[in-house]
Write a protein that binds this DNA or RNA. Structure first.
Lengths: 169, 169
DNA sequence: CGCTTGTTTCACAAAATCATGAAGTTAAGA
DNA sequence: TCTTAACTTCATGATTTTGTGAAACAAGCG
């Protein structure tokens, strides 16, 4: 544990968590700064921070934040919102971020699929390599079919967990 | 189509496919050279090439190949094999590469999970951020449970496809 | 209107990544 | 044991990526 009363926030620990987890996401291919912004929001109770707050937490320039949030917005992991009559943008974690992540992954596979189709043409369907790629395409298609069901069952499970944890759905 | 008899290999087309698909994989976070080696093997009928052949196909130095295959071997996407009484290493695409890729992804989530657990400690389970992470961990656990079933069903589907395509299993 | 605050863009510098050639290692075959 | 082929390691230089400060831009608010 830490020097903080049980249940409270351990500031240094949270800071370390942000850097460690963001580091892992970066290793997995995510842009470094985008990963740090994402995790900073994840560790925030309101799941919401302004650009200036992000710059402060992460100790970087506003310019770096600007680039990172543009990316995160594009891939739908966060949302930009501005309260009427304010100049400050707030960045929110999307509520269904895991669903969005999966969706994003599917977009990726769709793009791969179309390139693989061209590859099959170039190789010829009857070659062994052609067959192997045909199987790869079939695998992507299979995953595409399965995912809705998997996510559906996750929603059920999540609702059940929320009930157990005593949270509103 | 191409200038090649139907069913045959279109060399230039294959070359283009290798670069395009490898490029996509690189964009998705894979090391560039590793991606090129992987796709070169994918497009090879025998799914097998020596280091020298890879260097030739991809027009790079043997040193670059050496680094790429080290990575691909580590993450279990290819296998190195040497025929007895020879000095040449062959690199093989793993037969069950998609299964391995999924497995690898799970390893990743396992690592994330343990960092998230530390994060929950630092935040406190009762904070909103703590709860959000608890849900994230639950999502990873859920995926971990679902995957074996998904892959099982894929194997069935694949067997069926092979029968339809007239291939041995 | 213009001042002010918050954000974005852009040119540049710092840092990380990548592929290379050359030297080093290993083991086959003579 | 010596030679040689195949691969690996390592220092280096090139390229790419990343974050910065400064300047431009936008929009509340007086």
């Amino acid at each position: 544990m830490s020097e903080v009363a049980a249940g409270g926030r351990d500031r240094a620990g949270v800071q370390e968590f942000i850097e460690r987890f963001a580091g892992q996401l970066a290793d997995a291919g995510m842009q470094r700064m985008a990963a740090r912004v994402f995790v900073a929001l994840l560790a925030e109770d309101a799941a919401r921070l302004t650009a200036a707050e992000l710059a402060e937490v992460l100790q970087v320039s506003p310019a770096a934040i600007s680039g990172a949030v543009r990316y995160l917005t594009q891939v739908d992991m966060i949302e930009r919102r501005r309260e009427p009559g304010s100049r400050r943008d707030y960045y929110f974690l999307k509520a269904d971020m895991w669903y969005d992540m999966i969706t994003q992954r599917e977009q990726l596979m769709l793009r791969w699929r179309s390139i693989l189709d061209d590859g099959i043409d170039a190789l010829g369907v009857h070659t062994r390599a052609g067959q192997r790629m045909r199987e790869t395409v079939a695998f992507f298609d299979y995953l595409h079919e399965e995912m809705p069901g998997v996510m559906e069952r996750w929603k059920e499970r999540r609702a059940k967990l929320h009930r157990e944890w005593g949270l509103s759905d």
